[in-house]
């Protein structure tokens, strides 16, 4: 597939997924009907495009502009590593898993500079919180993702999907998917882990953002969620493998399942405190992830 084809494919996938996520999230917020929820993303985007950008006193403009752009780029880079339709359909990179991991950890940088940019206290605290969060879950996140490479004997996502033709890794590595989903929600600062954007910070990193900047940021975060779900289904739920339906449709169905699951968790569970989260990351998730690595390694021997 050409580079242009991959670009079109990733754009379509991320936009479509982001739309579904925003609608699902709106439906679960407890107000409004299905009709308004379906129209919500378009109306909201129109409003934000009309809203002029505000500025603060002596912001770090470059950082403030770069934040959303970087977040969007990282979501796209992560999505490129996942084969959508089948083994030969391109989009398969030799060390794709590491590419994905690197992109997801740089999300920290995007959020940090976006919080730093406006030179305002609440966004800055949001950025600090993101640093505390990602540094706590970065290791378990990388570990559970890389563990899927052990039985597949490859770092290419395509090979990992192929290795699941007999049994999905969600069964082979029962600890993998739950840890992945928790850490993925934290990396996308979503759901119970939306600390950088918490209501106790009046929006945190977005508290000073409006207009196009806010629209880009919101879209980029939704796209990031799609990318994380996409990788989750590829390495744990067998990706494009499945009976009857074509491969790309399986990919989309499985991605949407994880996406809706994350959206639901985000709306039903209360936000975690920062201290509790750091404890949770180091004391609960990290040992569990290590157990996951050791068990998978032992099984692979």
């Amino acid at each position: 597939m050409t580079a242009f084809g991959i670009l079109v494919q990733v754009t379509a996938l991320l936009s479509g997924g982001a739309y579904v996520l925003v609608v699902a999230d709106r439906l679960m917020s407890g107000t409004g009907s299905v009709r308004t929820a379906l129209a919500y993303p378009v109306r909201r985007l129109s409003f934000l495009l009309l809203q002029p950008a505000t500025t603060t006193e002596r912001p770090d403009f470059e950082a403030w502009i770069l934040g959303p752009a970087l977040l969007m780029a990282l979501a796209a880079v992560g999505a490129v590593a996942v084969p959508i339709a089948g083994p030969s359909a391109g989009g398969d990179i030799d060390a794709g898993l590491v590419l994905f991991g690197a992109a997801m950890l740089i999300v920290l940088v995007a959020v940090f500079i976006f919080g730093w940019g406006p030179n305002s206290v609440l966004p800055m605290i949001g950025g600090y919180r993101m640093a505390a969060m990602v540094l706590s879950v970065g290791i378990p996140f990388s570990l559970v993702v890389l563990t899927t490479a052990i039985p597949a004997e490859s770092l290419s996502v395509g090979m990992i999907v192929e290795a699941q033709s007999s049994l999905w890794f969600v069964i082979v590595q029962p600890l993998g998917l739950p840890i992945y989903l928790v850490t993925a929600a934290a990396i996308a600062f979503w759901g119970p882990f939306d600390l950088p954007e918490g209501a106790d910070l009046a929006g945190g990193v977005v508290a000073e953002a409006s207009g196009l900047r806010l629209a880009t940021w919101r879209f980029a975060r939704a796209a990031l969620m799609v990318t994380l779900s996409l990788m989750g289904q590829a390495v744990f739920l067998g990706g494009y493998l499945g009976p009857v339906l074509p491969g790309w449709l399986w990919t989309i169905v499985k991605t949407l399942v994880l996406l809706v699951l994350l959206a639901l968790a985000g709306r039903t569970i209360a936000r975690m405190r920062v201290q509790t989260f750091v404890w949770f990351g180091w004391v609960v998730l990290l040992p569990l992830a290590l157990v996951d690595v050791f068990v998978s390694g032992w099984l692979a021997l």
């Binding site: 690197a102 920290l108 940090f112």
Partner: peptide, 14 residues
């Protein structure tokens, strides 16, 4: 190359 990028994102924030 990828490991270097992965490592540095965390280290530079620190």
């Amino acid at each position: 190359g990828l490991i270097l990028i992965l490592m540095m994102s965390g280290e530079m924030t620190i």
